[in-house]
Every structure is written in C-alpha cells, then in structure tokens.
Nucleic acid binder design. Sequence first.
DNA 1: GTTTTCTTTTGCCCTATGTCAAAAAATCAT
DNA 2: ATGATTTTTTGACATAGGGCAAAAGAAAAC
Lengths: 201, 201
Amino acid sequence: MTSSALPTTTVSAEDFAEVAVGMRQAWPVSDSALAELRACLAPCRFRKRHLLIREGAALGKAYFLNRGMTRSYWIVDGQEVTTSFSTEGGLVFSMDELYYGLASQEYVETVEPVEAFAITVDDLRRLTCGNLELTNWMRVIHQNEYRRIHRSHKEQLTLPARERYEAFAAQFPSVCRRARLTDIASYLGITSSTLSRIRAK
Amino acid sequence: MTSSALPTTTVSAEDFAEVAVGMRQAWPVSDSALAELRACLAPCRFRKRHLLIREGAALGKAYFLNRGMTRSYWIVDGQEVTTSFSTEGGLVFSMDELYYGLASQEYVETVEPVEAFAITVDDLRRLTCGNLELTNWMRVIHQNEYRRIHRSHKEQLTLPARERYEAFAAQFPSVCRRARLTDIASYLGITSSTLSRIRAK
DNA sequence: GTTTTCTTTTGCCCTATGTCAAAAAATCAT
DNA sequence: ATGATTTTTTGACATAGGGCAAAAGAAAAC
C-alpha cells in the first residue's frame, strides 16, 4: 500500500459498504482491490453551493458521493452551461486533472449538502491505471458517461425542447425534482423561460 | 496466445508498424502486448459505401483503419444523424457489441474505399479487459471519444450554426474536406440547406 | 461521352425558441 | 417572522434556422 496523502480519519468497512456495492454494479472488483482503495479515502462534508472543483484550478481531489447532489458546468461567456449532475454513488472528478495534469475546465458545485469520501487525484490515478480490476472499473465509468452524453447529444439533435425535457424527466426523475429549473434548462440547451412554459403545460 | 477466429492472412510487423505508432500516442504499450494484438488481426478492404456495422445486427468485428474514412450514424425516424467520423489510425467498433453483447444501435459505413485490420469483438474484449496495458490504452480511446463528444455537445449548446461549422472545420479540416456536405450538416445538427448557405458565405 | 442518379444550391414562407423585462413566488438570512 | 435575495413565471416581440420544392451541378454508370 502506497497511499500518498489525505486519510486522517480512516473509512471503516461498514461506511464503505454502500460504495462497494455501487462499484460492483459497474465491474466485479475484488475485496483486496476495494481495501486498497478504501485506505486512500477520507470522509468529508460540504454545505450546499460549495465548489468542489473549479475552472483554472487544480484542487487535486475527487469524490465518491454518499449523500447529496452535484452539478458540473462550464462558464461560456458569462453563461453557466450545465453538463451533468451526479448523485449518490457517483464519482466526481475532473478528467483534465486526473489524466492530463491540467487545471479543470469545468466547475463542480454541490447543489445540496453533500457527504462524500475524498481521494487525491494522484491516488485515484495510481489505482485506476495500475490495478487491472480498477482500471476496468474506471473504463466502465467512462463508458457510462460516454453513453449518457452520446444519448443526450442525439436527443439534442433530434428532439424539440419539450420532448428533450420529457426524456430527461423520465430518465432522471430524481435529478429532475432536486435540481433548479435554471440548471435543468441549461443542461437541455434551452432558456429558463422556455422550460418554465413547457412545465406550465 | 488464445486467438479465437479470423486470421487467415497474418499481419506482418511492417504492415502493423503504423498502427503501433498510432496506438502509442494514446498509451505506452509494450512490444509483447502489441504482438498479441497483431496475432488477432486480419487485413481487409472495403469499397466506398460499405456497411461495416449495422443497426440491429451483431457482425462481431471491429476495425483498425489504415486508409480511408468511415461515418457512424443513427437513423431516427427515417433521418440519418451522423455522430462521428473516423479516419486513418482510428478504431471502429460498436460499444453495444463490444461490452454489452447487444446488437449495435448505430450504423458505420465507409465514406471512401477503406483498408483496415479486422479483429473479432471477442478478441478485442479479451485483450482490452485482460491485459493492463491494453485496458489502459482502451480507456484512453474512450476518454478521447468522450472529450470529443463533450466538446461537440458544448458547442451545440452555446454556438450558432455558423460558428459550430467553423469550429468543426478548424478541428477536423481533413474530415471537412472529405465528407459530404449532407453528412457534416447532420453531424452539426443543421439542415444541408443551412450549411450550404453558411458555406456560400 | 451520354444518361442516370445523387448532391448541392437557392427561394419562399413559417415556427420554435430566444431576448428582454417586469411581476410573482419561493428561499434564505437575520 | 420579516426583509433581502434568488428563482420562476409571464408577456410582447424578434429571429435563426427549418421545411419544402425546384433548379443547378457533380459524380457514377453504361
């Protein structure tokens, strides 16, 4: 074990259990690989509207979400453009930081109070590039993200605003209830006025 | 070595050299891993407008492109929606087939005469899930695709048609010259009439 | 080289959605 | 609770880009 930073409080196997179950839905990871990962985690909490990742910075952390929701967005000439939401069981990280050693291009903020396990991107990179099981697990994470955005992009190209919203609401009912109208609108590529009118029926 | 099908004609190290160079741009793969991969390849050629992958079918092959270009698309109520182009050095495959054992949801057709190395999806899956170097290499392939579509989606949400076209032309000048106007238009989510007018300046 | 087929261009009109702004409602802080 | 702030709703108007169809041009087939 060569954990490089963080763990001040250790995460118990019990606390980690839920994360483990979630991970195994993506790829069968052995107990020993999970134990290695667990040793690198530190529990943490954040209030609503806290920035976990910010553009132009390399904060060097990633988060396994246990409770709460986050939102990733770009700022494109002053406008926030929401690109994804993550909820319980999700892994929040900046690909730029994790793989390219760059500052993030996106922001990630908590939309609700969040409970999570933090890991340094160095540890996460070491584990997910050096261990076959975890490398495969991480590949599945990327695959899933790819499929989500691929689908979303397809819908963007083929469906009118109302149907995009309906598809979103059907696929992510929980997110749809918990997120602000404004953020959902920017995720769908429409204005909040339009989404408000759509919802008004 | 447990190659499962295909190789009637073996691919020589010389013929494979170009592919190897391309692969190493994504991830440092050792000679031995590359040799294992090479043993599973079969050279092949296709005329223009040949369907390499078709919706609802599991043809069971993936292709390393040496020469020529392909186009991936969905058919959404009768309309073709182009989702990507692949050129020399690219790997063409259906994620549904490769990882989910499903029939493909997309079509991939050759846009030009194509020279490629074919591999069965079974071999590709075995190699890219079972060998740490190749698993990492494949993860980078997914990452890159993810970033492309992420960017493209962002542009879809923030730029007007003309600027999307300009960004596309700047990022993929070769594709922009080689692909039909119609296909580029559908990739950008605009009609061919609109793209024609944009080009007319 | 002619004919056929496929692709691009162009014109005209139309609608989904954007823009801007102000009022109403909800949420937050004290 | 009460006022301050943020978010959502609603209205009036503007426009980018779609739909359709015909003509022009290019490529493929014979």
